[in-house]
């Protein structure tokens, strides 16, 4: 058998070797696109990502992002010039809300990222090795889970001092136990799958089994949880901002904006309404998207 050398035959070989994956991907797309709520979630998440990516270049008043002062135009209602109205400094709320997607994005990614990076290895170790390792990890996890997350985060921020970085750090610290729980349960069931036992009878090392069999099969639940947590983390960070322990004005952060806007309710309703709407749509989007992913990626779902 000669090795393929021409680019065309290389391509054909790629197509053949990955025919299964390609078919599977098409099946995912098909299942996902059949659910209206999943598609709405996808749309909202995409809109959020697009605004994150190109926000600074499309906002009408880029200089308002970092707190420019235009007192002549303070607290203007929504109009053609200011679609979402202006704040007490005359800042364009549309601009500040769009720029706020960047803040929310990195808050969400950092919190879920740190939580997953800490939680997944611990969860796999607990579920796969079991025994004493599991007892120690799970008891520590239980301690964290026993305290309400936001309350614990509040305590941590109070100790570290307010600020968006401290807020994110505090939330990451309370976020990882959920990942340990999820992955531990998954690894526990995977450990007794026949293919893992078969790998052991071939003399496979723990590293091989973890890398080849356990981790790849944990990816689906992980992706689903991470997607849902993006929304929840953004909401939690906004809550910290709202009570003055997270982002500080004039940083364009949704929670902080609502906190100030609240004092201008109800007459200047647009000040808190639009940041609130963005939080609502973002959290809803990530939740629907995560739900859709779960229905699609569930390996037990039949192939219709």
């Amino acid at each position: 058998m000669s090795e393929a050398s021409l680019p065309a035959s290389r391509l054909a070989r790629f197509g053949m070797e990955h025919a299964g994956s390609i078919r599977q991907a098409r099946f995912f797309v098909w299942t996902f696109s059949r659910s209206p709520s999943a598609m709405l979630g996808l749309l909202l998440v995409l809109a959020f990502l697009v605004l994150t990516l190109i926000g600074p270049w499309i906002v009408p008043y880029p200089e308002h992002a970092r707190g420019a002062v235009d007192l002549a135009n303070r607290l203007q209602p929504p109009s053609a010039a200011h679609w979402f109205g202006t704040d007490e400094m005359g800042g364009d709320i549309l601009t500040r809300v769009i720029i706020g997607t960047r803040t929310s994005f990195w808050i969400g990614v950092t919190i879920t990222g740190i939580a997953a990076l800490v939680g997944v290895p611990l969860g796999i170790a607990a579920g796969y090795f079991g025994g004493r390792i599991r007892s120690v990890i799970m008891r520590i996890t239980d301690v964290f889970l026993a305290v309400p997350g936001l309350v614990l985060a509040l305590a941590i921020v109070a100790a570290l001092g307010p600020g968006i970085l401290h807020g994110v750090l505090a939330l990451a610290i309370v976020w990882w136990p959920g990942y340990v729980r999820l992955i531990e349960a998954k690894a526990l069931t995977l450990r007794s799958e026949s293919y893992v036992e078969a790998a052991r009878t071939m003399g496979a090392s723990h590293a091989h089994i973890l890398w080849r069999h356990i981790l790849p099969n944990c990816v689906s639940p992980l992706v689903v949880k991470a997607s849902m947590d993006m929304g929840m983390a953004i909401l939690a960070a906004a809550s910290l901002g709202f009570i003055g322990l997270g982002a500080k004005p004039p940083a364009p952060e949704w929670g902080a904006m609502i906190a100030i806007g609240r004092t201008y309710m109800p007459d200047w309703w647009w000040y808190s309404a639009f940041p609130g709407l963005f939080i609502f749509l973002t959290v809803l989007g990530f939740n629907l998207f995560g739900d859709g992913l779960r229905d699609t990626l569930d390996p037990r779902s039949s192939r219709g």
């Binding site: 799958e193 026949s194 293919y195 036992e197 078969a198 009878t201 071939m202 099969n217």
Partner: peptide, 18 residues
């Protein structure tokens, strides 16, 4: 590990779906 190999009952769970 080399000389003795196993075939399980349920072929659906004996192969890693990935």
């Amino acid at each position: 590990r080399r000389d003795v190999q196993v075939v399980f009952q349920n072929p659906h769970s004996a192969l890693n779906p990935r």
